[in-house]
């Protein structure tokens, strides 16, 4: 996942590569993802979130739908 200055920059990037436009995330949402994944990474108890936990984390910051489902099969 990459930074872009604006949505227009995302559209240009996708068009140049023939790639579909996927969801955009704000800096604030990204920070909450960073905390959820990495805040305890240097502790003995650290672990990656499981599928259900991932869904809860995404939904909790407004990221819904099959794109954010780690077990979805509707995206190629």
């Amino acid at each position: 996942m990459s930074f872009f200055r604006s949505e227009d920059m995302v559209d240009q990037w996708c068009a140049a590569r023939g790639r579909p436009r996927r969801p955009l995330v704000s800096l604030e949402q990204l920070w909450r993802l960073a905390l959820a994944w990495y805040e305890n990474r240097l502790s003995p108890e650290a672990r990656r979130p499981g599928p259900d936990e991932m869904r809860r984390i995404f939904a909790g910051i407004g990221l819904h739908g099959p794109f954010w489902d780690p077990q979805a099969d509707r995206f190629g």
């Binding site: 996942m1 990459s2 930074f3 872009f4 200055r5 604006s6 949505e7 995302v10 990037w13 996708c14 790639r19 436009r21 996927r22 969801p23 955009l24 995330v25 704000s26 800096l27 604030e28 949402q29 990204l30 920070w31 991932m54 995404f58 099959p66 794109f67 954010w68 489902d69 780690p70 077990q71 979805a72 099969d73 995206f75």
Partner: peptide, 15 residues
């Protein structure tokens, strides 16, 4: 983070 004009594009689905 302090506010900065930018967005983050996720090109690949979580699965």
């Amino acid at each position: 983070p302090e506010p900065v004009p930018c967005v983050i594009h996720f090109a690949v689905p979580a699965a």
